[in-house]
Design a protein around this nucleic acid. Structure first.
Length: 723
DNA sequence: AACCCGAGGTTTTTT
DNA sequence: ACCTCGGGTT
């Protein structure tokens, strides 16, 4: 029995653990079975692989470790690669890509699906460098050919398919994409149009946000709406029949107006793959080598997509992931996909990458201890061959959140001689947990950048401007019309709907805007008409944005008192526009690969050209979710109170709690050299009062971590005893 | 039909 | 402490 830090604490285990037992057993069996297909880089295999490398440009054997080499050179059949944190996953995919090409695979046959487009481009570019930098005398490989590799996120790939094969699929290629907020609006509009009751026996109808959530979860996790509501939203059960009907109406509404939400983009492709044999065979013949990154975060439709494309034995599939890092169930990801891979592909091979190149042994010991607490998963133990042990992670409790922030700032300034600002990151469970940290950093003049939280694309004024662009691209986009028209005083929901209908009925001409019936509602409609007419003739995306802004700025000034601040964002928007030469690529990029950093930065003011390096040197403040895949020398994780991390909403559900545990694992495994964990004494909100240290900190063996107690002379006099 | 105001429920994470 | 929704008012 190992000693844990807070042995006296008692945490209630989720009640549904018993019900979960059969499912857990099934998953365990699938894991066990696939474990028997594990291949290891033994001497014989390696020798075989090395022999086949004669004549290749890249020296795979000396640049990869044994199992990386195995993964990079196993190019036929179905393979699952379990890639632990910091095990060189991107490197392996890069070398595999290069290996495929050196073995005569055409770049056009390669499909690379990753979590972000950035990751896809990185792999492509690194593979290019790899292949072309070795270019000696007669290198037959053209670096440009790598552009023919199809790569991107599931969403961008499916979006491309829908547009490119629109003829074959019988759909309109000029559709617009609804983000989550737009979907909510569309649900609301459908609801109002159909005039469904908003109350039954005094029970209010759920909000649009809740509805969007229900619809999306129902589709991504394949749970009928009725069951989902009965199990997760029991208090709105009286509304089930209406909600079910609304789901159908909502879907028809989207189809009628050429609107696709995030879920449609994937699901519609899956639907076509199932029904359209020509389409399916086309893709199966085209993409012969498929690689999927972050497989643990795929949802059911995404898994189905892969399964359909990979049905022929001749299609090679390698999925890469880490079951310890599945943290997206809330948006429908299904952690079972990776655990049940052996069920879908009984012949699949399993390869594990367990050598860690990121963290010191001291940090690794800790994250291995965290990993041991995760109930389900493939056997794994990260190891390092670095001999310097490093410093153990530190846990410190402080009286409140501002003291926590102070402590973090102190530590950063203390170790500033060893590191740059950009070597630090503060990782938070929720974005608002960074508020105190931001304040403290501003006061102490520590430059920082905030990642996660309210994003660029979701700001009201940005969405407004994009609505104009969307209309120019798809005049059927009723959601965008509605958004624009209700900006004007005198035009409300009813007029907007009527006007939108008139436009659509008039073959999408803008003419109804200048009929007297509507112009008397607002003087803005005529200028709008002129602007749209002009913009539809404009030469470039940038010119269109300029025209829209000329029109929109006065409106913004009337509607928002902080218009000056908001209009700063338009420079970013104009820059983005200048990078695109067509409306579809511009809109697609913003919808599916939006700029991630919030513009919120502080500290070092801009000082012109030379200070670019200085502007990069900032501490990162990020949500844990947005930190996935990244690493820093020094990592802080705050708010480690049970109820904040794990979040109180997940305490009663076994699977949700497991995901929180994995989230903490992701956070800690970002650290290269130092890991600081902090917790305030308590946290209270309308949902309760929480004062126990996070169970994730409490449950690991005490010798893996240094716990600072009251005895430590850190500038806090009123540090209470907390265990 | 639009707008204003007050009440009540709300807050995790994001392609 | 915040935003969304509903109801009453203009």
């Amino acid at each position: 029995m190992t000693t844990t830090i807070f042995a006296t604490h008692h945490y209630n285990y989720p009640q549904n653990f018993i019900e979960m037992k059969p499912k857990i057993t099934r998953l365990e069996q699938a894991i066990k079975k696939l474990e028997t297909n594990l291949i290891n880089a033994d001497a014989e295999i390696l020798e075989q692989r090395l022999a086949s490398h004669l004549g290749l440009q890249v020296d795979y054997a000396s640049e990869l470790n044994a199992n990386q080499l195995l993964a990079a050179t196993t190019i036929e059949g179905k393979v699952l690669v379990i890639a632990g944190a910091g095990s060189g996953k991107t490197k392996t995919l890069t070398y595999r890509t290069s290996y495929l090409i050196e073995n005569g695979v055409s770049p056009k046959e390669i499909l690379l699906l990753t979590f972000t487009r950035k990751a896809a481009n990185e792999i492509k570019n690194r593979a290019r460098t790899l292949l072309t930098s070795r270019l000696l005398d007669n290198n037959p490989i053209d670096g440009k050919a790598l552009n023919d590799i199809t790569s991107g996120t599931f969403h961008s790939f499916c979006n491309m398919l829908l547009r490119q094969y629109s003829g074959l699929l019988g759909i309109n290629p000029r559709f617009t994409i609804l983000d989550t907020g737009d979907s909510e609006d569309a649900i609301d509009l459908t609801h109002k149009e159909k005039k469904y009751p908003t109350k039954i026996t005094n029970q209010a109808f759920p909000r649009k946000k809740t509805l969007q959530n229900i619809f999306s979860t129902s589709r991504n996790r394949r749970i009928p709406i009725r069951h989902l509501i009965e199990s997760s939203y029991p208090d709105i059960a009286v509304h089930i029949p209406v909600i079910e009907q609304l789901a159908i109406d909502f879907h028809e509404y989207k189809r009628a107006n050429h609107l696709y939400d995030f879920d449609d983009i994937i699901s519609q492709v899956v639907r076509h793959l199932k029904r359209n044999d020509t389409f399916r065979q086309l893709l199966q013949n085209q993409y012969r080598y498929i690689m999927v990154d972050e497989y643990q975060d795929t949802n059911i439709p995404q898994k189905e997509l892969i399964d359909l494309m990979c049905a022929p034995a001749s299609v090679s599939l390698m999925v890469v992931g880490d079951d310890n890092q599945s943290i997206y169930a809330f948006r429908g990801a299904n952690y079972e996909n990776i655990l049940l891979f052996g069920e879908s592909y009984p012949e699949a091979k399993l390869i594990k990458l367990e050598q860690n190149y990121r963290s010191t042994p001291a940090v690794l010991d800790y994250i291995n201890a965290l990993s041991a607490q995760i109930t389900l998963g493939y056997q794994k133990q990260l190891y390092s061959d670095v001999s310097m042990e490093g410093i153990k992670p530190v846990f410190r409790r402080l009286s409140d959140e501002s003291k926590e922030a102070k402590y973090i700032a102190d530590k950063i300034l203390e170790s500033k001689s060893d590191y740059d600002y950009q070597d630090f990151a503060v990782l938070c469970r929720t974005s608002f947990q960074s508020n105190y940290v931001q304040l403290e950093f501003m006061e102490r003049n520590i430059p920082f950048i905030v990642v996660g939280g309210i994003r660029f694309i979701e700001r009201r004024h940005i969405k407004d401007v994009l609505a104009f662009v969307k209309i120019l691209y798809n005049p059927n986009d009723t959601i965008a019309w509605h958004r624009i028209l209700t900006l004007f005083k005198g035009v409300g929901s009813v007029t907007a709907t009527r006007l939108t209908q008139a436009i659509n009925a008039d073959n999408n001409s803008f003419a109804p805007l200048i009929t007297t019936k509507f112009t008397k509602k607002s003087t803005q409609l005529e200028p709008l008409y002129k602007m749209l007419s002009k913009a539809s003739q404009a030469e470039s995306v940038e010119a269109i944005i300029e025209l829209i802004l000329d029109f929109y700025m006065p409106v913004l000034k009337i509607n928002e008192d902080n218009w000056r601040e908001r209009s700063e964002d338009f420079r970013v928007l104009k820059n983005l526009a200048s990078e695109h030469d067509s409306l579809d690529s511009f809109l697609e990029n913003l919808a599916l690969d939006p700029p991630n950093d919030s513009v919120a930065t502080a500290g070092v003011p801009e000082q012109g050209e030379e200070s670019i390096d200085k502007n990069r040197d900032k501490v990162t403040i990020s949500t844990i979710h947005s930190a996935k895949g990244l690493e820093w020398s020094v990592v802080f994780v705050n708010s480690l109170v049970d109820g904040m991390t794990p979040h109180y909403r997940s305490l009663s559900d076994f699977e949700e709690l497991e995901e929180e545990r994995k989230l903490f694992y992701v956070a800690c495994s970002r650290a290269k050299a130092r890991l600081f964990l902090t917790a305030p004494d308590y946290f209270s909100s309308y949902s309760g009062y929480f004062d126990k240290v996070s169970r994730f900190v409490a449950e690991v063996p005490a010798d893996t971590i240094t716990v600072l107690t009251v005895k430590q002379p850190i500038d806090e006099s009123d540090d209470p005893v907390w265990w």
